[in-house]
Design a protein around this nucleic acid. Sequence first.
DNA 1: CCATTTTCTGACCGCATGGCCAGAAATTTA
DNA 2: TAAATTTCTGGCCATGCGGTCAGAAAATGG
Lengths: 242, 242
Amino acid sequence: MRSENGPGGQPDEGTGGPGSGKAAPEPERSLIEKVRRAQIIEAAIEVIAERGFAKASMAQIAQRAGVSKGVISYHFAGKNELIERTVEQVYEALGSFVQSRLAGQTGAAAWLRVYIGSIAAHMADHRSQLAALGEIFTHFRTDDGELRYGIASSEPLYAHVEDVFRAGQRSGELRAFDARVMAVSLQAAIDHMFAYWSTHPEHDLAAHARELVDLFWHATRAQHPDDDRADGGPDDHHPALS
Amino acid sequence: MRSENGPGGQPDEGTGGPGSGKAAPEPERSLIEKVRRAQIIEAAIEVIAERGFAKASMAQIAQRAGVSKGVISYHFAGKNELIERTVEQVYEALGSFVQSRLAGQTGAAAWLRVYIGSIAAHMADHRSQLAALGEIFTHFRTDDGELRYGIASSEPLYAHVEDVFRAGQRSGELRAFDARVMAVSLQAAIDHMFAYWSTHPEHDLAAHARELVDLFWHATRAQHPDDDRADGGPDDHHPALS
DNA sequence: CCATTTTCTGACCGCATGGCCAGAAATTTA
DNA sequence: TAAATTTCTGGCCATGCGGTCAGAAAATGG
């Protein structure tokens, strides 16, 4: 089934989530190969972000990249591989950034503040990547019709956030609540923060992120009737947005 | 530009949100007309929910409805009108249900409980409608490429929820926070509750909804250090989900 | 400098889409 | 019943899609 000429990609990469494979064999690539792949992925991000997934055809992406359509087929096994490599690249960049910011932080309060803040900070500098990711997650489907990156592929993320909440509950820092629902709702609030920002570019993303920290801190912290400002609450102001 | 035979619809309906038009002139329709339109809309909901917006072609919808493709073109001005009528129908059913449940409720605590609970209850009984709405909101675009029902069309909803929060703040029932961010986050949490439920059908939707009430009650209520269980908090249990 | 390999082009293929329409069928009206 | 109108069918069209291909162009290397 593979193209007979051209390097293509590794077509059968499996079913894991976006960053699921550190087991990628990474075949050697010539210089041109690496440059072209990066160039095409960048073009794909721009076109998807600007025109939406459905309108982001191979022809559009090729035109944006300044090459002919066949080049994409030459350097990638097909559109599916192009999209998957694009997701991997964006997702890994975000993940490693957040992880580096999170390193060394202890306690649920600090974790909340740094987690939300660093995601917002990184995405504020990568708007196209953000928009493209959103389009891909909601539109890209496998051959059998299921969303390629659906809720199911967020499972590792949910599980991790859930663990953080559970640890906070065990330590007494957080109240009793359903950690899975809280994790899903936190991701939801972050997602929609970006969606709202995308259509209201003048909206203050950093301030929104701080409000979100505040929201989830109030929602999760254990009750300390008196010292509600002495227990390391992550934030302390309520600026009026917009 | 209009079809020369057949009733079609009213093509130039404007740009308002889903339920924006109570000014719909509702032209007289024959019995067959009404039956066919309902039948086709129902088929559209099923196909979109099951196969996704992109795969929901006129041919697919016609086949599901048990009629030939041309019938849709005869009764609707085009695919766009079919989708818009579908959204209106689903959205208005939900809206009137929630509004009836909300009537007579006073206080932010009761409002939160009834608002979240009634949306969840109604949607639990209309899974296909819910899935179809989600697909349409994220995929359906106007001719110029913009999402037909984007964040912008949720503005009236956001504004209303915002008002409820502001009233609660003025009455002293709720703490100081950014009402817009809270409104966006509440809608986000509700949206994702359904998304999560869609891919985890065994998930307990009602319990999730109760957790959400709890979450936003803790996030928004004013601090009453001692009587945090005596001030009419909407919910009082933390069942472990899943 | 020429042979070999890598890279690229632009035309082409089969397919699915939304919309269109001539005419058939069914229903209503006179 | 006969004419008029409404409703329906199924095939057709132009368009755009992802993917393929023969051969041109460029890079490589002996």
